[in-house]
Amino acid sequence: MSCYQTLLDYGLRSIGIGERLLPKSDFTLCEHFVLIGSGFVWNFYFGIFALMFGFFLANAVAVAKASHNPWVRKPAEWFIFIFRGSPLFIQFFLAYESFVLLPRVGFDLPLGFTTITVETSWLTKAWLGALIVLTLNTAAYAGEIFYGALNSIPKGDIEAADAYGMSGWPRFRRVMWPTIMRLAWPGYTNEAIFLFQATTLVFFSGFPAFRQQGDALYYASYFSAKTFNPFMAYPVIAFYFILITLALTWIFGLVNKRLNRHLPQNLKARIRLRPQLIR
């Protein structure tokens, strides 16, 4: 069987397109690359959407934590403490075990042009349940980064804004927020990279795989369980992850450049990868 044929059969196996049965014996290197690569559809899905939703939530959490009102500050502090203080592995387990206890109901959600029925049973599926956990998790970590950046805004920036008669939302939007982003970006880049790595835990803790559709690590462990040989599947997945890390560093580096474009050359913050944020 040619590698092209394998690609057609298994390229999108992780979302149920192509061959129904997984290969059973005589695994080729090509099958390793194709099937594990196909699993990355899930890793990308979790990574991108959790980052997207988590980013907005993180901003809200950071502002809430900086608030003077204890009714706003305390919940934000607890939220950050719980999600940063416990292992993601346990969070997945606990989330899954709690979600299955929910009563199974559906309710209609009008979207204007159409109405979709939202069902609580979706929560126990990885695509929603695990996404929620990852979103909350990254929101807590990123929220702490943004909060740190918020506290490091130079006093002069705020004073200048005041002098211009800016206050409230315009001051936050036009003066504080861009500075927060600029200061937090290197840390946030790390968070994004480690979030992508954390997506491999989804099918290892609680959430079951349906129709043998799982993420990259699910297929890597499938191969190593069948071949009893770890020297093939794990290096393949490691190779993919190094590519992703390089790509993420590049993309976030571009954003970083844009955030710092007004600064003199020697003041620009460079992104350094630090293991500050893995869970």
Binding site: Q197, T200, L217, P230, Y234, F241, I242, L246, L273, P275
Partner: peptide, 11 residues
């Protein structure tokens, strides 16, 4: 930095 820790734990 590039590779998830869980992959190392399995390997």
């Amino acid at each position: 930095r590039g590779v998830p820790d869980i992959v190392f734990f399995l390997f």
